[in-house]
C-alpha cells in the first residue's frame, strides 16, 4: 500500500469536490477522458447493472436488488459509485462499439465470447 500526503504532486486531483470520479486513458489513441458523477440525483439501482428488463418482464424476482441508500455520507457515496459505474459502462461500451465496427476479426469475436460467457449460448442457438 502506498500513502501520499497532501501537497504531493497530483495534478489530476486539483479542484476536486470529494466525489468519486474516474479517468480513462488510451495510450494507442492518445485519449484522456475524465468521467464525473455529476450533481445527481444518484440511486443505488444502476441502469447498466442487475437483470435486464427482458428478464424482469419474464417475472423473475431480483433477489440481488441493492438496498436503498441511507441518508449518510457512505450512503451518498454508494449511490455516486453506482452512477460512476453506469457512466463508465456506457462510455466503454460506446468505445467498444466504435472499435468493433471497423474491426471484425476472429480474435475480437473470441475475446467477446469468453468474457461475456456467451460461447456456449451461441452453440445452443444453432
Amino acid at each position: 500500500m502506498t500513502v501520499l500526503n497532501k501537497g504531493d504532486n497530483n495534478d489530476d486531483l486539483n479542484g476536486i469536490e470529494n466525489r468519486p470520479f474516474a479517468i480513462y486513458y488510451n495510450i494507442g489513441e492518445a485519449i484522456e477522458k475524465r468521467i464525473e458523477v455529476g450533481d445527481g440525483p444518484h440511486f443505488t439501482k444502476g441502469k447498466t447493472s442487475g437483470p435486464s428488463d427482458f428478464v424482469l418482464k419474464a417475472g423473475i424476482k431480483d433477489k440481488d436488488k441493492p438496498s436503498e441508500a441511507k441518508d449518510s455520507c457512505l450512503g451518498k457515496l454508494r449511490s455516486e459509485l453506482t452512477t460512476l459505474q453506469d457512466k463508465i459502462n456506457v462510455y466503454l461500451t460506446e468505445r467498444m462499439a466504435s472499435n468493433s465496427s471497423g474491426n471484425n476479426n476472429e480474435e475480437a469475436k473470441f475475446e467477446k465470447e469468453i468474457l461475456d460467457g456467451t460461447a456456449e449460448d451461441d452453440e445452443d442457438e444453432y
Binding site: L81, L84, Q85, I88, N89, L115
Partner: peptide
C-alpha cells in the same frame, strides 16, 4: 482492451459498493 477494462472496472466497483 476496452472490453477487458469494462469487465474489470464493473467487478471492482460492484465489490466497492
Amino acid at each position: 482492451s476496452d472490453r477487458v477494462l469494462r469487465v474489470l472496472a464493473n467487478n471492482i466497483i460492484a465489490s466497492l459498493k
